[in-house]
Nucleic acid binder design. Structure first.
Length: 661
RNA sequence: GCCGGGUUAGCUCAGUGGUAGAGCAACGCACUUGUAAUGCGUAGGUCGUGGGUUCAAUCCCCACACCCGGCUCCA
């Protein structure tokens, strides 16, 4: 047989000479495809382009501009990074270097715990480009464990990986490096550089080059904070210079949206050093937005048959001992205050207090589901290195509710919660949701398997009934029960975890909560913890980034700014302001003591939704010139019309019908 | 908490072993302008805090606080 036949993804088959590789296949189809090909799949398994094909194989070609192709490029670039570092830093040990979203990293241990500087990054990148120019092949081989250990005799981390794989204690990251336990696969670029790897890789280093080293950071070996600290170099790599530039541009755009920067520029809030880390003060403009968020949340909860409660910021330690939080999170709580009559803690959560409200009198099944809601201020001593603007903060406000219900009500309640959450989030411009179901971590949890099983099933049932797709996060649950987390995508496609629904059979047990059923007997309720915003602070931070600081007019601290063209128009401008204020708008005037252009610019950089310019014509016609944020200037709009239009825009933003799907 | 980098005027940032500078903002004066930066002038800083080295420290060293990029953690 001088020919083989392979099956392509479109169902067609193609004849090739015996011994042909995927590269040959690509070339036989077209020169552009051959140029774009970086790897392939044979019968579903990813392989190098150079692998000879067998008769009857199902083959597809992985091109550089696909997710799988970029993954190959990035992983191959990581190998080049490792080679450059080993060449430039005598005695460096290399560990693992996977492809990640948008790029890759590689972890190293330098002799004497040395670290990389920014200058080092520049020289490493230069060396990498030399290696790419040298057109080194990626040559795969499979060797025995013994041979592999000999190859990496001077590389302790590589030996550790090989040994772990062969002893059967490998985890996912190891398999990514090596493959299987029977033999060890290696990729060699040159006499002096070889790395453990499962592959596939590009055929040669010259196929790489659209990359940039981004930053150096510390990282623990195998993610273990008790283990050695390695030096991680992050890079990004793409299929073309255009794609690389676009990525760098996206990063710049994301930086412009940084909520910490915008919160400062727009005078929304600040983190005074004098307060201590992770604690914010809200300035008047930020407070306006916050209040509107809270008002909207309260209105929706009122409509949703929630009952509002208030609880104190402090509690006796006994309460948190009873709830179990002290056992699990004492390190994450502000330190205890010793008082004459006991030990007190700042509250890190509201649930135990809501349980006390439930327990304050006898409850009937007729009251269930009982939904207690509070914008509750909590304090958590987040570790110093973890603080991040509003997204990770030590004092914050949860839009927290605890719902007490019967086992039978649980799935319905969760299901309607999913609707409620999406409906509220849509009002803030989020339309793209992802669901995650987090299951028990046996090491960090309380309660019986039976209870956990029931709770997890209830969440799963609600998700299934809703017909939404969801991912399972194994072992990611809270200590008291499984949860559904809801992620949203923002205006530029970034993912944020916001809402959570947590199922809890344990706190009712610990607090011995009961209700009297229709049968006259006492029963234990089930408790659902849920938050929509998560924390007001965090949600506000995400909103700033989502809107890039340009809040929709219903949320804008300043909705309208009126600019008189000249001093002579000041009186008229003032009357326009008065009319707008009377209509309930948040409006300011910027008097004519600067050039109009300058004042327009100021209003634009403050991201005010509407700038109204008033001059001679407007005085004559009782009109305004409307300059909307991101739109075209419209002259000679009557004040009455403008008020009517803005009123519609704002009321639709606040109260309009909400499309829940 | 760990690794690395940082902290200079309200903001963004230069800079130096001999106690500091720009742009914007603020304030004043002139200009009175029809849609994204008018001109001139004034004022503003014990250079994060506390120690140390030095004749002399904003600069070098140490500690602490806070911030940034990651890691780890996240009820």
């Amino acid at each position: 047989m001088s020919e083989i036949s392979v099956l392509l993804p479109d169902g067609s088959s193609r004849a090739l000479p015996v011994g042909s590789s995927i590269a040959d296949l690509a070339a036989s189809i077209g020169s552009r495809l051959a140029k774009a090909a970086v790897a392939g799949t044979v019968n579903g398994a990813e392989v190098d382009l150079t692998v000879p094909l067998s008769d009857g194989a199902t083959v597809s070609i992985i091109t550089a501009d696909s997710d799988a192709g970029r993954h190959v490029l990035r992983h191959s670039t990581a190998h080049v990074l490792a080679q450059a570092v080993l060449q430039l830093f005598d005695g460096a040990h290399f560990t693992i270097g996977p492809a990640i979203e948008d790029g890759f990293y590689y972890d190293f241990a330098l002799p004497d715990n040395k670290t990389f500087s920014d200058d080092d990054l520049a020289s490493i990148e230069k060396r990498m480009r030399e290696i790419m120019k040298a057109n080194q092949p990626f040559t795969r081989s499979e060797v025995s464990v013994k041979e592999a250990l000999a190859v990496f005799a001077t590389q302790p981390y590589k030996c550790e990986i090989i040994e772990r794989v062969t002893s059967g204690s490998a985890d996912g990251s190891d398999v990514g490096e090596v493959g299987s336990a029977d033999s060890v696969s290696l990729y060699r670029n040159s006499e002096s550089f070889v790395d453990l790897c499962r592959g596939p890789h590009v055929p040669s280093t010259s196929r790489l080059g659209h990359f940039s080293l981004m930053k150096v950071a510390g990282a623990y070996w195998r993610g273990n904070e008790k283990g050695p600290m390695l030096q991680r170099i992050y890079g990004t790599a793409w299929e073309s210079d255009t794609a690389l530039k676009e990525h760098l541009h996206r990063l710049e755009e994301a930086t412009k949206r940084d909520h910490r920067r915008l919160a400062n520029e727009l005078d929304l809030l600040s983190f005074p050093t004098e307060l201590g880390g992770g604690l914010a003060v809200w300035h008047p403009k930020g407070a306006i937005v916050r209040k509107l968020m809270e008002d909207y949340s309260r209105q929706r909860h009122q409509d949703g048959d929630y009952q509002f409660v208030y609880t104190p910021h402090l509690a006796n330690a006994n309460l948190f001992a009873k709830s179990g939080h002290l056992d699990f999170y004492a390190d994450g709580m502000y330190p205890p205050m010793e008082m004459d009559n006991g030990t007190y803690y700042m509250k890190p959560m509201n649930c135990p207090m809501h349980c006390l409200i439930f327990d304050s009198r006898q409850r009937s099944y007729r009251e269930l589901p009982l939904r207690l809601f509070e914008l509750g201020n909590v304090y958590r001593y987040e570790r110093a290195g973890t603080l991040h603007g509003l997204l990770r903060i030590r004092g914050f406000t949860q839009d927290d509710s605890h719902i007490y219900c019967t086992e039978e009500q649980m799935a319905d309640e969760i299901s309607s919660l999913l609707d409620f959450i999406m409906s509220v989030l849509r009002r803030f411009g989020f339309n793209d949701f992802e669901f995650n179901l987090s299951t028990r971590d046996p090491e960090k949890s309380v309660g019986s398997d039976e209870i956990w099983g029931k709770a997890t099933e209830a969440l799963r049932e609600a998700l299934d009934r809703h017909g939404v797709e969801y991912k399972i996060k194994e072992g990611d649950a809270a200590f008291y029960g499984p949860k559904i987390d809801i992620d949203v995508r923002d205006a530029i496609g970034r993912k944020w975890q916001l809402s959570t629904i947590q199922c809890d059979f344990n706190l009712p047990e610990r607090f011995e909560l009961e209700y009297v059923g229709s049968d006259g007997a006492r029963h234990r309720p089930i408790m659902l913890h849920r938050a929509l915003f998560g924390s007001i602070e965090r949600f506000f931070g995400v909103l700033i980034e989502h809107y890039a600081g340009a809040f929709p007019s219903w949320l804008s601290p300043e909705q309208v700014r009126v600019l008189p063209v000249a001093l002579a128009h000041d009186e008229y401008a003032t009357s326009v302001v008065a009319q707008l204020k009377k209509a309930g708008f948040r409006v300011d005037i910027d008097h004519a003591d600067e050039q109009l252009g300058k004042r327009i610019r100021n209003a634009k950089t403050s991201k005010v939704p509407y700038v109204l310019v008033v001059g001679d014509d407007d005085v004559a016609h009782q009109s305004v010139g409307v300059n909307p944020r991101g739109g075209e200037v419209e002259r000679d709009v009557s004040v009455v019309d403008f008020i009517a239009r803005l009123a519609v825009e704002i009321s639709e933003g606040q109260l309009g019908d909400i499309d829940v799907s």
